[in-house]
């Protein structure tokens, strides 16, 4: 058994080396009648679990609308943000609908559809904060919270080089910590921050302002992540995004959550 195990380990290590260099498969022959969708479930209002543990949010509703448009059956799974891309690559799900920005770094790993929304980043501070403006000087020596592995964390590090940026597993944790005063400011999507500030939980804080969305960090807006090579699925999603934009379904979902245009220009 030990033997078998070591053999399997060695064999798989070899396969690893081989697989890393291996060619990409395509999905040309694949029948996409069911699609498994991965999302995070901790990023309100885009995706979150409600009080009864059900997935809700803009991402989830857009995904459902797209699936309906494509006439495929969709099932949802949740996955921590950290492991999102590997889980997609490993086949735990087929499409990643989790408010992920289309960045060059990520495009090296996975493919993206066209954008399905685009909103700027922003910064929020406690109501009694002495930080007057979102400038590098004003945040010198301050502590900023952001979600780990996100474009917002990178942007915070780039825009406020003299601040200490702390990485949180999900958006919910930095919200707890700005409430308790452990961090002086948080950086995230303006919609996420506004939604939180409107709720009771966000009573502690106010929006300090939006931040410039550096295309080098933020890329081309928010897209749906797919495995490289799944070209057929990518075409299906892109056509469906255009279709729901055209037939009013997109606006219907948008109006359920927002009173402004999230698609961007």
């Amino acid at each position: 058994m030990t033997l078998l195990k070591t053999l399997v380990l060695a064999g798989s290590a070899l396969a690893f080396a081989a697989g890393a260099a291996g060619a990409q498969e395509t999905d040309a022959g694949k029948d996409w009648s069911t699609v498994v969708i991965g999302t995070e479930g901790a990023y309100p209002p885009f995706n979150f679990l409600d009080a009864s543990g059900q997935l809700q949010g803009f991402d989830v509703d857009i995904a459902k609308a797209l699936c309906e448009q494509m006439k495929v059956t969709c099932t949802f799974v949740t996955q921590d943000w950290d492991g999102m891309i590997p889980a997609l690559q490993n086949g735990n799900f087929d499409a990643l609908v989790a408010s992920m920005s289309i960045t060059p770094e990520r495009e090296e790993q996975i493919a993206f559809t066209d954008k399905y929304y685009q909103t700027p980043p922003a910064i929020a501070v406690p109501k009694d904060s002495d930080i007057a403006e979102p400038s590098a000087a004003a945040l010198d020596g301050k502590v900023i919270g952001a979600q780990t592995g996100t474009t917002h964390l990178q942007a915070a590090e780039a825009l406020f080089p003299d601040a200490e940026v702390r990485p949180y597993p999900t958006a919910e944790e930095y919200k707890l910590d700005i409430d308790s005063g452990r961090v002086d400011a948080v950086v995230d999507d303006v919609v996420v921050l506004s939604d939180w500030l409107k709720s009771d939980a966000g009573a502690c804080c106010k929006l300090l302002g939006t931040l410039p969305a550096d295309p080098a960090i933020y890329g081309k807006g928010i897209g749906i992540g797919l495995r490289k090579g799944d070209e057929k699925l990518r075409t299906m999603f892109n056509e469906a995004i255009q279709a729901i934009r055209a037939n009013g379904k997109y606006k219907e979902v948008q109006d359920k959550y927002f009173d402004f245009d999230v698609y961007g220009s």
Binding site: T2, L3, L9, A10, A20
Partner: peptide
């Protein structure tokens, strides 16, 4: 031999990787 060979292989492929 098989077990040790497997480790050797694993180590080598790790290095190769």
């Amino acid at each position: 031999m098989l077990a040790l060979g497997a480790w050797l292989l694993a180590g080598l492929s790790l290095l190769a990787y």
